[in-house]
């Protein structure tokens, strides 16, 4: 059922980059939870695969001003990582919301990002956290903010011969900071998000919002940041009315479509409601009062 032409199993990064350069048609295989499904459905066949299994690409590192996540880190490893649990629990929530335990044991955060799906469970949080990606080719590294990485459904800014080698998350002051991911799906496990909503809130000493970030998955062809809503909230002390207005403004960044999975009308309602719920909870975690 799986038609594989050739499988590369490089053990070093330079070796992998060389293969990618020489065989640009190669498909990178991380956890395989997307690629193997596509192969089984014959949407990909007679493929040349480059497996990341032997490359040192997993792990989480706390570098003080930023946290660096290896793209080969599985969702289970991510969720169980002590640095993640204390510094970025919202990504642990996202990791545990994805698929089921078997999927989480093999699926990687890098694969989740590079697959380019707007429904990727890690994406809204990475957007809200202003993650930056290191893309590496035989010619060297470049850094791309994740907000510029997604270009369309299933499409990302990965050039031929390039691969994702690091995910950087700026991690500043942790006091008066809160981050939340809400996955909205029919089931509690083994499901795809009807909508994903992530929010980050940082408060000043006076209790005003100094940073508001709201990101949505499945609200547009790519994950998006709700910048109008963020601008409204920044510099203010949230009230119930302000949040309602922010929910309405969250829609300006979104362009949900109707599909048999959900109608536009319903997704719009969810965007308004869940953007507010996520931000409200992030605000509470940052030390703001419950609204």
């Amino acid at each position: 059922m799986y038609f594989v032409k050739k499988l590369y199993l490089p053990e070093t990064l330079p070796e992998a980059l060389k293969i990618l350069k020489e065989h640009p048609e190669t498909t990178i295989l991380a956890g395989g939870t997307d690629v193997l499904v596509k192969m089984r459905h014959k949407r990909m066949r007679d493929v040349t695969l480059l497996s990341l299994a032997k490359l040192p690409l997993s792990g989480v590192e706390d570098k003080g001003d930023e946290i660096v996540i290896g793209p080969g880190t599985t969702f289970t490893a991510l969720a169980e990582n002590p640095i993640m649990q204390t510094r970025l629990p919202m990504l642990c929530t996202a990791a545990r919301s994805m698929g089921g335990p078997q999927i989480q044991n093999v699926a990687t955060i890098g694969g989740n990002v590079c697959n380019g799906a707007t429904s990727a469970d890690s994406a809204p949080s990475l957007f809200a956290l202003d993650a930056v990606l290191t893309l590496t080719s035989a010619g060297g590294d470049r850094r791309v903010p994740i907000r510029e990485f997604y270009t369309g459904p299933g499409r990302v800014k990965l050039e031929s011969g390039e691969m994702l080698t690091a995910i950087h998350i700026p991690a500043g002051e942790q006091a008066r900071w809160g981050g939340v991911y809400i996955k909205f799906s029919t089931r509690k496990a083994m499901d795809i998000a009807i909508l994903g909503s992530a929010a980050v809130c940082e408060l000043g000493e006076d209790g005003r919002v100094i940073k508001a970030a709201i990101a949505m998955g499945v609200a547009a062809p790519t994950p998006v940041r709700c910048t109008d809503a963020e601008a409204l909230l920044t510099g203010k002390t949230p009230t119930a009315e302000l949040l309602q207005e922010a929910g309405r403004l969250a829609l300006t960044a979104c362009s949900p479509r109707s599909s048999w999975r959900a109608t536009k009308e319903y997704r719009e309602a969810l965007i308004q409601e869940l953007s507010v719920r996520a931000f409200q909870e992030a605000y509470r975690l940052a030390g703001g009062k419950a609204l």
Binding site: T186, R187, K188, I192
Partner: peptide
């Protein structure tokens, strides 16, 4: 059939 898979045909999981 639009949802001929167990992602889109939503049988409850034990978590549900």
């Amino acid at each position: 059939v639009l949802n001929d898979n167990l992602l889109d045909y939503k049988v409850p999981t034990f978590a549900d």
